[in-house]
C-alpha cells in the first residue's frame, strides 16, 4: 500500500514537471509577417490585382509559381466580369431570333479576353526564408483598361454588332471605363517619371 502511494505521488510530480516544459519553438523558420498588400489588396478601377504566394528552394521558381497562380486568378476575375457583361448585353439587346449574332458577340469576347493576358506584371515582389525554402509573395497586376480597349476595338471590327452593342447600357458602362483609362494613360504620359 505504501509503495503504491509513493508511486502515485511520484507519477503526479513527474506529470506536473512535464507540463511545465512548454512547447518547443519551430526551428529554422523565419516567421516574418506577410506583406501588408497581401492581406489589404489595393483597389484601382483601371487594374485587377491578385496577391499570390508559393514556395521553393529556388527563389526564381517560387516567384514564377506565385506569378502563375496570380495570373490564373486574374484570368478568373476577368472571366467573371465578362460573363456579367455578356449576360447584360443578351438581356438588353439580344434577340432569340438571331442566334448567330448572339454567338458572334460571345465569340468576340472569348477571343479578346479568355485568358490571354497582355500587360500582366508583378507590381510588387518580396520573399522570406522559410526553413530550406523561399516563400515568395507576389502582387500580380493587370491593366483592365487596356483589355477593355482591346475588346472595343474587336467589336468595332463588326459594324452591325457594334451598332447593336452601342445601344446597350453595357456599352455605356464599358465606354465610361475606356474613357477613364484613356485619361489615366494621358496622366501617365504627362508625368512619365520612373521611381527606380
Amino acid at each position: 500500500m505504501r509503495s503504491l502511494t509513493v508511486m502515485l505521488v511520484f507519477s503526479a510530480l513527474t506529470l506536473s514537471f512535464m507540463s511545465c516544459g512548454g512547447s518547443k519553438p519551430l526551428t529554422n523558420t523565419n516567421i516574418d509577417p506577410m506583406p501588408e498588400w497581401f492581406t489589404n489588396v489595393p483597389q484601382d478601377p483601371n487594374f485587377l490585382f491578385a496577391p499570390s504566394t508559393d514556395t521553393s528552394p529556388d527563389l526564381n521558381l517560387a516567384i514564377q509559381k506565385a506569378m502563375v497562380k496570380g495570373r490564373a486568378e486574374i484570368g478568373r476575375q476577368y472571366e467573371v466580369k465578362v460573363e456579367g457583361l455578356t449576360k447584360s448585353f443578351m438581356e438588353e439587346v439580344g434577340n432569340p431570333d438571331e442566334p448567330e449574332m448572339n454567338q458572334m458577340f460571345s465569340q468576340t469576347i472569348q477571343t479578346v479576353v479568355s485568358t490571354q493576358l497582355r500587360g500582366s506584371r508583378a507590381k510588387k515582389t518580396t520573399y522570406v526564408k522559410d526553413g530550406n525554402n523561399y516563400r515568395a509573395y507576389v502582387l500580380v497586376e493587370y491593366p483592365i483598361g487596356a483589355a477593355n480597349q482591346a475588346f472595343m476595338e474587336a467589336l468595332k471590327a463588326n459594324e452591325s454588332m457594334y451598332t447593336r452593342f452601342r445601344a446597350s447600357k453595357a456599352f455605356e458602362e464599358m465606354d465610361d471605363e475606356v474613357k477613364k483609362y484613356e485619361e489615366w494613360k494621358e496622366k501617365q504620359r504627362e508625368g512619365a517619371k520612373t521611381n527606380y
Partner: peptide
C-alpha cells in the same frame, strides 16, 4: 534599390 521589390511603371 526600390526596383528590386517594386518594378517601375510608365505608360510607354
Amino acid at each position: 534599390p526600390l526596383w528590386t521589390v517594386q518594378a517601375p511603371s510608365d505608360a510607354a
